[in-house]
Design a protein around this nucleic acid. Structure first.
Length: 123
DNA sequence: ATTTTGACGGCAC
DNA sequence: CGTGCCGCCAAAA
């Protein structure tokens, strides 16, 4: 309870279906911006692929984890299954699907608020 | 107590 | 576009 991993899982569970966020963003969301690496460690050590949805956490440049043998990782398969757009074999399209609990202004990308508005305008 | 290990990120080339 | 190095620090050994 209240452990680092639990805080990480709380944030990760907030990521909406079809959206992604980054390890660093999760670290900042729990007030510990220097621990992006441990966010990754928490994801790796999680047993259940659905709770938390570890596959929705990617590198800051949109790259997703790849298996050492080159086969498609579970993360990539799950993201594709959710309809998350990829710009190439290993990178998701952050401009289209990045979600941030607070703001993404700091890294120059649309906020979740911007995204909601775009969705509304498309209707 | 000390060492090793990272599903990171930033910056320098 | 990549490659490498360094700083970060919790957990496991």
């Amino acid at each position: 309870m209240g452990s680092f991993n639990d805080k990480v899982y709380e944030v990760v569970r907030e990521i909406p279906y079809g959206r992604v966020t980054t390890y660093g963003a999760v670290a900042r969301a729990i007030g510990q911006p220097r621990k992006a690496l441990f966010v990754g460690f928490a994801m790796h050590s999680s047993a259940d692929p659905d709770d938390p949805p570890c596959h929705r956490v990617v590198y800051k440049d949109g790259r997703v984890f790849e298996n050492e043998d080159g086969s498609p990782s579970l993360q990539k398969l799950l993201l594709e299954a959710e309809g998350v757009p990829f710009v190439d074999d290993t990178h998701v399209d952050l401009d289209a699907c990045l979600w941030h609990r607070v703001l993404t202004d700091e890294i120059g990308r649309p906020t979740d608020i911007d995204w909601e508005r775009e969705m509304a305008e498309d209707q």
